[in-house]
Design a protein around this nucleic acid. Sequence first.
DNA 1: AATGCGGGGGT
DNA 2: ACCCCAGCATT
Length: 331
Amino acid sequence: MSTDVVTDRAADRPADRGPGPAVPIDRSALTAVHRTVLDWYQANARDLPWRRPGTTAWAVLVSEVMLQQTPVSRVEPAWRAWMDRWPAPADLAAAPAAEVLRAWDRLGYPRRALRLQECARAVVDRHGGVVPDTEDALLALPGIGAYTAAAVAAFTYGRRAVVLDTNVRRVLGRALEGRALPAPALGRAERERAAGYVPEDRETSVRWNVGVMELGALVCTARSPRCERCPLQTRCAWVRAGRPADAHAATRRRQAWHGTDRQVRGRIMAALRDAPDGWTAESALLQAGADGADPAALPDPRQPARALASLVADGLAVRGDDGHPSRYRLP
DNA sequence: AATGCGGGGGT
DNA sequence: ACCCCAGCATT
């Protein structure tokens, strides 16, 4: 039996070309990878609060939504305070949206907070306050996509699912497919390959999903992977290939931040949150959007107004009525 | 398939 | 400075 994890055929196939076999890896080698990751996870898992026994499905769901593009270190304290304040879907459903957005604070992408509250209301209205236990039903909830639906189904209900986040994609891409980093976009072919890697046994699949994710978060990191600490080091297709560079490096372009509408929106949201109960004058918001300067001095003088209008369109801010048309507040 | 959407900490 | 983070909704 070969000790190579990746078959020659799989290694030679151009990245993301054609469907290919669902499992381009030797079956017994895959089983060994499963066992290795499960053992490693048992010895190295972090003690994250949402992993503790007794955590409700709703609490897990909230953690997953907060973790959408926000690192664990920042989510942890926010999640504790949040769950302390709104422990059940009905609690969040009944809260004023402004309070929800204020509690969201600087986790980023505040639309997620609105969606999470919509999700709470949907759970109450459609499911009697009980988080649904199937991926399809979860996927139908606001703010719940493929990853979060799979994660909740697997981690709180013990379902066999294809949990495919940035960590899992990176570990699978490296260890089993020899890539430095996953493709910028998650396509059908990659999803099908990942599905083929999930252990058949239900309980094993749950530990595999969380184990691979943890390995990606702690060892097989994007920037400087700690291969010397990796339990898959001797099997890793990427290491065996000499850790080749990222094939998508040229097309992988970071979204700009300085001077963008997103940055300006963020400043305006911060200003809106700082007005505890009352309204904020439009002029103050535009100035906040310009980072305290005169908006007219910006390269694009209309940017703060545009950003504020987009926040209103997104339901993150509301404008005063006819009596106070130039004042705004959180919804 | 591509784009827009926050914010902060690690390197 | 740059990069990345347990993605989702919309086009």
